[in-house]
Design a protein around this nucleic acid. Structure first.
Lengths: 153, 153
DNA sequence: TATGAAAGTTTTAAATA
DNA sequence: TATTTAAAACTTTCATA
């Protein structure tokens, strides 16, 4: 999966990460090239899997999703079947935006977006009724200082 | 910021969150409408701030950004000036993808994407040299179980 | 890499339900 | 008031130089 990118590729990626609605001409002008080479580079990077997709970003507040929790999970269960069910539950729940398996003391971290604290509790009750969990700590976000999808390229 | 959305709006948002490269015709067909009404609804939702932007999502692994850390921060400092400098440092560092101020015991959580553990240490040393921090716990992700930008609409 | 032409898409306007 | 039709402006895509 190691792809070689040059400076021009990186500039194009920076533009597309910031705003994918720009026309090829506009991007070409900004990166100091022209339409066809930029188009070919974008196609190559899509084929190589560097650019995975293009999507719309919505404002969670505008949709009434005003609460964001980070959830730290410790479990005593490490059976394959338990894990399979747990991962399935996470993947199926749309309020779970991120889920990672961790090294060390804490086993999993989740990022969960919901309408309010009450909706979080509903989510939490549903989750622990589906799979046995040893210990859960919920961290409530008071302020989103930064949230970007831009990777440093 | 409370915007009223109907069923058709929600269907359009779901499509755009999944894939913003689809043509208007395609989206219109999927949601059971036609080009102009869909176009008008999208314009209205952009103006209302529900749709904030359209961007390209890149694959971090393909870019060699193979390590992801969640960083829990406790601080003893709650001076306005300290906080201003801390937030500025976070916003300026491109490896910090997310930063939240939390309620409770832990003051901040960060999500940090870097090449490897060594690059994380470099980031960490730079950060603590910029601002005094009382206690830091880094949680290393072993596996990204789920990572979506799709909000439930 | 550049040019340019064909195909397709978005955007605006006018007509219609 | 919202939808359909239609047409102009712009973009993407691709062949060829």
């Amino acid at each position: 999966m190691a792809v070689r990118l040059d400076d021009m590729d990186r500039k194009i990626l920076a533009e597309l990460q910031a705003d994918a609605e720009q026309s090829l001409d506009e991007i070409a002008r900004k990166v100091g090239s022209s339409k066809t080479p930029v188009w070919n580079r974008i196609r190559r990077m899509k084929e190589a899997g560097v650019i995975t997709r293009q999507i719309a970003i919505l404002d969670p507040e505008a949709l009434g999703l005003e609460a964001c929790f980070f959830v730290l999970i410790r479990t005593s269960e490490h059976e394959a079947d338990w894990q399979r069910r747990f991962l399935k539950a996470l993947r199926e729940r749309p309020e779970v935006l991120e889920a990672h398996r961790l090294a060390g003391d804490i086993d999993y971290i989740l990022k969960v977006r919901v309408k309010n604290a009450r909706a979080y509790d509903t989510f939490y009750q549903a989750l622990i009724s589906e799979v046995r969990i040893y210990n859960v700590t919920a961290l409530l976000s008071m302020e989103e200082i930064k949230a970007t999808t831009m990777l440093p390229v």
